[in-house]
Design a protein around this nucleic acid. Structure first.
Lengths: 198, 198
DNA sequence: TCGTTAGCGGAACAAGGTTCCGCTTCGAGC
DNA sequence: GCTCGAAGCGGAACCTTGTTCCGCTAACGA
């Protein structure tokens, strides 16, 4: 059920046309965006349109929806992980970097929660989950520590706990205008700040 | 979102053609059967066909799928509750009655689990759940006690626990031939029997 | 530069949801 | 018992989405 395309890093056995590879990347990015705006149940056509490809191309690369969701998941974990240090280097302050990173992370959670649905009882889900933790907790820790070192954030919060809290805040929203997780998460981040005085 | 038709027992505000009322009952029974065999996501057409009505009739009575599922749920709880004493009176032994009742209960669980999905974050779900407990635990207790009194079943098991166990056994099966909850439940009931000797 | 073929787009088909309207039948009033 | 207004019905028609298939395009090895 899981895509047979190699894990990031290993060269595909051989032969794969350059445009096909490019398409796959475009597709992953487009799917990620559409998942965020329309959920993981978004019509295939919508994703195809966003990516500017035909639906056939999606089905060729990802025979089932679960394949696509898993691939996006990996892609997002990777992107999120790489974005951490990059944001830290580029941002004016570590807290700003953390905030931007959390924003990416929230987008990613849509896919993650959709994944849980799409895979249901499928095994291999746990493997993906530990992969996710192993990869992202250190990144979040790095951002958090930097913000603490810079004196922007009070010490004493664990990355795992923060990520889990954010994850839980993102549960169960479905376009309900009365519940916007991002608002709450912003509050959470505010709460993280080191008190002005003291 | 919940059907506006009155709860069992109260006369509808006024005027409701007899055939319409009859149809509604037929529909509930048909939907329950179809839910058992095809799950709560069964096509509307299939339910209409089973009931021998047009799809329009379903939409008129139950505008959304959730309405239908909720109505079937109530209907099933009621049927299950009423079947308890009836089976006890009609069966040769209390254990046989219990066994038949559990069979009804398992059918009902399909709807119940489907309901949880259909309603998701919808409130009112808890209300239905307590209604379910209040109504059925006493019935199950009665059957269980009768079987104990008849010496067919060892004492010491609580109805709530038994029902919950059965409920949990019914989770996550989806036509997988390798997992048939009814087989396990049968084992459970066997385990309930008073040891031959002693 | 050429030929092979991987890969592409999207038309065509399938399946299910939802709406709508002309016909049927109920049942209140007489 | 008969009449007639309208409640209620069935199912065709239409819409959305999933999935397959095939003729065309263009990448790339020779």
């Amino acid at each position: 059920m899981v895509s047979t395309a190699g894990r990031p890093g290993d060269a595909p056995a051989r032969s794969k046309r350059a445009d096909a590879l490019r398409n796959q990347q475009t597709l992953l990015a487009a799917a990620a965006e559409v998942f965020v705006t329309s959920g993981v149940d978004a019509p295939i056509r919508q994703i195809a349109a966003r990516a500017g490809v035909g639906v056939g191309t999606i089905y060729r690369n990802f025979p089932t929806r679960a394949d696509l969701v898993v691939a996006v998941y990996r892609h997002q974990v990777e992107a999120c992980a790489e974005a951490g240090p990059a944001l830290l280097a580029a941002s004016a302050s570590p807290l700003a970097a953390l905030r931007q990173w959390v924003d990416l992370f929230v987008d990613f959670l849509v896919t993650k929660h959709g994944l849980a649905n799409a895979l249901q009882a499928d095994s291999g889900f746990e493997a993906l989950h530990t992969y996710f933790l192993d990869r992202l907790v250190p990144v979040c820790t790095q951002l958090l520590d930097a913000a603490v070192d810079a004196g922007e954030v009070r010490p004493g919060t664990q990355a795992y706990e923060l990520m889990r809290g954010i994850g839980n805040l993102c549960i169960g929203r479905d376009g309900d205008p009365r519940y916007d997780p991002r608002r709450l998460i912003e509050l959470l981040l505010q709460g993280l700040r080191r008190p002005r005085s003291s």
